[in-house]
Nucleic acid binder design. Sequence first.
RNA 1: GCUCCGGUAGUGUAGUCCGGCCAAUCAUUUCGGCCUUUCGAGCCGAAGACUCGGGUUCAAAUCCCGGCCGGAGCACCA
Length: 482
Amino acid sequence: MQLSEKKEPDKGLPALEGAEGGVVMRFAPNPNGPPTLGSARGIIVNSEYVKKYGGKFIIRFDDTDPVKKRPMPEAYGWYLEDCRWLGAKPDMVITASERVEQYYPIAEELIRRGGAYVCGCAQAEFKEHKDRGIECQHRGRSVEENLDLWQRMLDGTVAEGEAVLRVKTDMHHKDPAIRDWPAFRIVTAPHPLVGDKYRVWPLLDFESAVEDHLLGTTHIIRGKDLADSGSRQRYLYEHLGWQYPRVIHWGRIKIHQFGSFSTSKLRKAIEAGEYSGWDDPRVPTVRAMRCRGIRAEALRKFMIDLGVGETDISISMDSIYAENRKIIDPEANRRFFVWEPVALEIEGDVPALAHAPLHPAIDRGVREIPAGNRLFICKSDLAGLKAGEGVRLKDLCNIEIISTEPARARFAGKDVGKRTKIIHWAPADGPKVRVLRPDGMDDGVGEAGISQELGRVVQFERYGFVQVNSVSEPIVAYFAHR
RNA sequence: GCUCCGGUAGUGUAGUCCGGCCAAUCAUUUCGGCCUUUCGAGCCGAAGACUCGGGUUCAAAUCCCGGCCGGAGCACCA
């Protein structure tokens, strides 16, 4: 064996074996909802390898179950949209349900080579055989007989549930999960995309294996739940004389802030009205991240740092937020937003107008905010104040509290003092603002300038970063992070 | 039950293949300090890990055996 020199701490993704001449890689979702953060990992890492080595990145919709994993017609487009947004525009997009035609001749060839047989066992019956390692009576059928039965599956003579096409592996394989697996079954229910064009549908192991070959896939990265799939598919490849791609598995990803989630569970919750939609800030979809002002670059960096370990991991959004903060902090204008607003009456010469910088470190000019003798401050800030105490209203003036109930104060000069407590405020006639958060919502009052920030990420001072998504009354912003 | 696969700080990750340069990398997190007209950013500092037990070896996170813990698969789902 050749010794490779000690590699320097490699940034980014670990090297892929056999990738030097370029790679063909795919991400193959079932489109039954929009991409989640879990999908984002698959999209980002696969496409990143293609960027690194050159080659082709393919999105393949594995939508071959019209019933149990019923695809959602809108979701196909959502995937492409989110891929593009994630900086992972596919070089090729294919949809399995539109390519079933191509699978039939391969099935036939497989039968000719003696690699598959039509099996009429009932499901439970076959499971029994499988568990005990016994070959069923159908396994010994001749090629001719199998071809004939296959035809009858296709032409409708054989009814749904009465037969499957099974790939021969080894009924004595030590792992029962690998023994003769089904490649095609009959489904008469219409498919949401192609209707009743086909009645014989491939199962994932067959469809995926065949497509990987047809597309020239060189490397597969997939969840370890599909680890046994490889062992099954290798038999198919052997029968057909194909070469199996290299495979990497990764563990399941859980996110502290969202717990474990699945697209189908989300779908149910959304249909039940628990969430406002697929971009609700409480939901772990790519589009929700986008609406909250999370940048694709932050997601990419994070997912690439995760690498491709086989352990199940439990991550925290904090790391994504930290990445994102680095990106948006310089871009985001500062604005005042007062949650749980309390009116404060101030006596004296409070300036009628405040001048506050749009950004504390980068000179982008100032914003003018109407002030005066009546302002809003946060209830929690008021709670921390006592009569007689001095405090500075940020970018405006100093005040001295007269009483907290009712909230009254008097003007105490404009000079910025040393180490005085500083709080922010909002004008008496400021617009209502609602912030939707992953953990609830905050209602309050903001400065009028927020309505100029539609579609942009801003920092509500002393609150956090948000994206302004609607500027009609009330203004609606989605919370990103602190 | 059967069959696979994993286990490095709170979280993730590098190092494991090919033992020494590892009293273990980076990020995040938490806590201090400085700075600051934000509880943000920045700067400085600190905290915190090789699952356990044996074995091999001059030398083990790294190799071997066993235990423990965790995960996955065992569908006419993807």
